[in-house]
Design a protein around this nucleic acid. Structure first.
Length: 629
DNA sequence: GCGATCACG
DNA sequence: ACGTACGTGATCGCA
């Protein structure tokens, strides 16, 4: 055993040097954590591929533990995925992690919970379930307290802890210089590891107090923590892919892109790379098309698909159409290639971030499963495992419903209550149509699409100009539509005004669950620059959009948690595979599908009392089935 | 590393 | 008179 004390931390950092040290550490940690009722821990890992951290594959180097503010313990685990100890010690380490998992009387505190629990899963093959309340994530706690700043452990340590972080920062710099942890001096890694679990321990109490003071504790306990554990399962099990289908498509698109490239070169008269904006501009000039383009970026005129679509409307330009097709195919093939690259044994696993957005939405990474192209082309590859079905649930128009809920707008509430069509109703008012709601769909489908644009635009805090561009009408018309909209839905207008004045006064907005979006300094900004300043109005748009978007997504996520609890209570086998904001996909064992669907309906439709959101439910074999006609 | 582009809700 | 839709992540080409 070696002691690596550090005066800056005021704590003892103890490092095991052999198997018997490890065994005595385990005894001490069990004893200490049982007494204090709390255990912070942290792993160090080594990415196999540089810059691509993957807890399901990376080498597990070491771990550290801290149960009071006096001492932290660290010991090594593996090197190149091989244990560093004999079987007896390895078994004791595994038993120790099982003990941690099973002991619900001890609070386990981790910075970035899902990451470390994936490593625990690799070691003992188990993970905690949604209803286990003995886990804490300081990263998510910090995010709820401040959605605008970094939640990295080092930053938090200097922001919240009354502790000279100088040495820590320097140590981090040293470690940061060498991205490959395994090539570091082992004692430096251990010291760093100890510092991390020690920081996590200290942070927990500070953040807990702040959360309670800010009324965020309920949101954390009832939503964030269960959601973290639920998504842990989602990420561990992954989504099954039809690899043969993807490989076949990859070939097909490879040929198609080469062919399109050849055809375009033939038309233009020289070879060029259609993926390069720079080369594309040259091509547009040689075809005398550049004069028709009125959209510009920092580096020159735009060649994006909206510009191309406009050009295409003006005349039959074979080249422009081929380029549009090329861009679309290129994009799809990027998705296909990405999936094939990242899948392991036919399973694709994403990483959901709870702190990836300022609105409480999740984000999804490596790969992003929340932005797959609509339609069956790519989604058909996402299939259920043998003996299972996919149950796909969509919340219908949840954001508009949330808006009507907050606004208490009688007109809009009535439309939703009676099962009316909100877009048709808006179309009638904005475009002065003289027909019934039902007739709008048949007689004026294009106007209904435009009304849909108005409905969504309102939630984003639209301007006449942007609305005009979006639904392709004149600015004067757009102005007219907006004023008619507010005449019809006066409650919405009042809600927007109320939200604006309250965010200027308080410098934050808060939704019904207590989630906050903070705009520090807004009051002064308004004072010095006025309400029409671009930065100010941008914040005001964000504020209103936050209210709607955050509430909608909190409802969706609460429904997921309720459903999963129902699944466990009823002993069903159903796991969430992916969440795309207002869409959930579950994998359910065939025999339980019917009961699962009734649980989903009953647990989801009324998450807030008195506020119902209808759900579109489908039972599918693949994600693509949703788009089959 | 950044701009442009494009995929999603 | 003026001007911006809200929230994300991935990839490509090019300095």
């Amino acid at each position: 055993m070696r002691e690596l004390n550090d005066p800056d931390f005021g704590a003892r950092f103890l490092v095991a040097e052999n198997g018997s040290d490890v065994l005595s550490f385990i005894r001490l940690i069990k004893e200490g954590a049982s007494t204090s009722g709390i255990l912070a821990f942290d792993f160090e890992t080594n990415a196999l591929k540089e810059d691509r951290v993957n807890p399901l594959e990376d080498s597990i180097l070491s771990c550290s533990f801290c149960f009071d503010d006096k001492v932290a313990y660290a010991f090594r685990l593996q090197s190149k995925n091989k244990w560093l100890y004999d079987d007896n010690v390895v078994n004791c380490i595994k038993e120790f992690y099982e003990w941690i998992l099973n002991n619900k009387n001890i609070k386990k505190v981790i910075h970035n919970l899902k990451f470390d629990l994936k490593l625990v899963w690799r070691i003992v093959g188990k993970y905690p379930l949604v209803n286990d309340s003995s886990w804490e994530d300081t990263m998510i706690m910090a995010y709820l307290l401040d959605e605008n700043n970094s939640v990295g452990l080092k930053r938090l340590a200097s922001r919240y802890l009354n502790l000279d972080g100088f040495k820590y920062e320097r140590m981090v710099l040293e470690v940061g210089k060498i991205s490959n942890m395994s090539s570091l001096d082992w004692y430096i890694v251990s010291q760093y590891n100890c510092a991390d679990s020690f920081m996590t321990y200290k942070l927990y109490y500070v953040l807990l107090d702040k959360m309670k003071a800010d009324d965020l504790f309920d949101l954390y306990e009832k939503l964030c923590r269960p959601l973290l554990l639920l998504l842990l399962e989602t990420e561990i099990i992954g989504f099954k892919l039809d690899i043969d289908y993807l490989k076949q498509k990859r070939m097909w698109y490879r040929d198609k892109l080469i062919e399109l490239e050849r055809e375009m070169s033939k038309i233009v008269g020289f070879n060029f790379n259609p993926r390069s904006v720079k080369q594309l501009r040259k091509v547009f000039e040689s075809l005398s098309l550049s004069g028709k383009i009125d959209k510009f970026g920092k580096t020159g005129f735009s060649t994006d698909k909206n510009v191309l679509a406009k050009l295409s409307k003006q005349g039959d330009l074979v080249f422009v159409d081929k380029l549009l097709e090329f861009k679309k195919s290129q994009k799809i093939s990027e998705f296909i290639n990405g999936l094939l690259e990242k899948q392991r044994d036919g399973i694709i696993s994403t990483n959901f971030l709870l702190n990836g957005t300022v609105t409480g939405r999740l984000s999804s990474r490596e790969p992003n499963l929340q932005n797959l192209p609509r339609g069956a082309e790519v989604r058909r590859a996402f299939i259920s495992r043998d003996g299972c079905k996919l149950v796909i649930a969509d919340f219908e128009q949840i954001e508009l419903r949330v808006a009507s809920f907050y606004a208490k707008d009688k007109t809009m509430l009535d439309i939703f209550k009676s099962g009316g069509d909100i877009h048709s109703r808006t179309a009638i008012e904005c475009f002065k149509l003289n027909c019934s709601e039902k007739e709008v769909k048949e007689k004026y489908p294009d106007l209904r699409v435009k009304a849909k644009g108005v409905n969504f635009g309102i939630l984003y805090g639209l301007s006449p100009k942007s609305l005009a561009e979006y639904i392709n009408v004149s600015i004067d018309d757009a102005k007219d539509y907006i004023s008619r909209y507010f005449y019809l839905y006066t409650g919405i207008k009042d809600l927007i005004d109320k939200t604006r004045s309250s965010v200027i006064e308080n410098e934050y907005v808060e939704n019904i669950f207590g989630r906050k979006r903070r705009f520090l300094g807004l009051k002064n900004l308004v004072k010095s620059k006025g309400l029409n300043d671009e930065e100010v109005s941008s914040h005001l748009r964000e504020a209103f959009n936050f209210l709607i978007q955050s509430t909608a997504v909190d409802i969706c996520n609460l429904s997921i948690i309720n459903v999963k609890k129902g699944v466990l209570e009823n002993n069903l086998d159903a796991k969430l595979l992916v969440q795309v904001h207002d869409e959930q996909i579950w994998e359910v064992v065939n025999s339980g599908v019917e009961r699962f669907c009734s649980i989903l309906k009953s647990e989801s439709e009324e998450v807030i009392g008195g506020f119902k959101t209808p759900i579109d439910l489908r039972i599918c074999n693949s994600w693509g089935d949703k788009y089959a006609d």
